[in-house]
């Protein structure tokens, strides 16, 4: 092949050129992502000293009780006792709640997004498709904080929904159950992650050979059965990526529970922020962050395993 010839002529192998070209970005990602993640993993097994980390191996940040050390008369002394992540009822509650919220958000987002992706892929004229996708992605790129806050306005006591329902005479008193709870968090997050769910499903639907569907119909399947037995299985890789791309980041969302969650709606990100910024307990904060990632990874792997038959390539 002439490309091999030309790179040979220039005295460099394909692999060397590629590695050299990618090295600045790779080194950046290594230093600012891989190394920091390794650091918090290491910190999560160390002890909390006074404004320092004491490098002694311990597992009590995860299970059991730990001590924060303080400097007293020039000696590090065990001062404050605290529970590890899996021995602390509050941390457990927040981890479980965060996972639950993420799963709910994922389900709502993907189920609501699928028909939109299907519509754009199957019913929109080819030259209008990118306009639709552009319209779907715009809200995603615009002022995240303000959008989250406006959900508070929509769901609030004198909010849009309550005013509309009262104006129509359906209710006489504003419904207070709309705001400051897990439901409000799910609504807000499902809204924020909508494009993330639509795009992968759309890409998978676009790849489907339309003659398969005709074949299904020609062979006497109903439209619904063709969808169930041909379209849906072929769209599954897109549905799976949509699920993961919504599920994984939502577990760590900080802004939404903070603004619309109220006191009962705190999630694990709020706990991590508290442990790092307010309590200055880096080992415990790191252990919480690592635990959250671990749980997300386990759930994601189980999900991938259950759907493995859709991800195999064509035989």
């Amino acid at each position: 092949m002439s490309s091999i010839k030309s790179s040979e002529r220039l005295g460099r192998s394909e692999a060397t050129s590629g590695l050299m070209l990618i090295s600045p970005t790779a080194i950046f990602a290594f230093l600012l992502l891989a190394a920091p993640l390794a650091t918090i993993l290491a910190y999560s097994f160390m002890a909390d000293g006074y404004l320092t980390i004491i490098p002694q191996f311990q597992t009590c940040n995860y299970i059991g009780t730990c001590f924060s050390y303080e400097m007293k008369d020039g000696v590090l002394t065990a001062a404050k006792e605290y529970n590890g992540v899996f021995s602390d009822p509050l941390a457990q509650t927040l981890l479980v709640r965060s996972l639950g919220v993420s799963l709910m958000v994922t389900l709502v987002t993907v189920v609501l997004a699928f028909p939109v992706a299907y519509f754009v892929s199957f019913h929109v004229a080819a030259d209008k498709k990118s306009l639709w996708l552009f319209l779907i992605t715009i809200p995603f790129w615009t002022s995240y904080l303000v959008r989250v806050f406006l959900w508070k306005v929509i769901l609030g006591y004198n909010g849009v929904i309550n005013s509309a329902l009262m104006g129509l005479g359906i209710i006489t008193e504003p419904i207070t159950a709309l705001n400051y709870n897990v439901g409000a968090i799910v609504t807000t997050l499902a809204h924020a992650y909508a494009p993330f769910a639509i795009l992968p499903i759309f890409v998978a639907l676009e790849k489907i050979d339309r003659s398969f569907l005709e074949a299904g119909l020609d062979l006497g399947e109903s439209a619904f059965n063709t969808f169930r037995r041909v379209t849906l299985p072929l769209a599954m890789p897109g549905v799976i990526s949509a699920t993961l791309i919504v599920f994984i980041p939502t577990v760590g969302d900080y802004v939404t529970p903070n603004l619309v969650g109220g006191p009962e709606g705190k999630l694990v990100a709020n706990l991590i922020q508290l442990q790092y910024m307010k309590l200055d307990n880096y080992p415990l904060g790191s252990a919480t962050a690592v635990s959250a990632m671990l749980l997300v990874a386990i759930v994601s792997l189980i999900f991938l395993f259950l759907n493995r038959r859709y991800l195999r390539g064509p035989k």
Partner: peptide, 26 residues
């Protein structure tokens, strides 16, 4: 190539708070 690109693209799905606190610690 897969591992390197995977690492570079990881921030797309990694919960942002985790990337943020790990950078803070470093």
């Amino acid at each position: 190539k897969g591992a390197i690109m995977g690492l570079i693209m990881l921030p797309l799905v990694l919960p942002e708070i985790i990337a943020a606190v790990s950078l803070l610690v470093v």
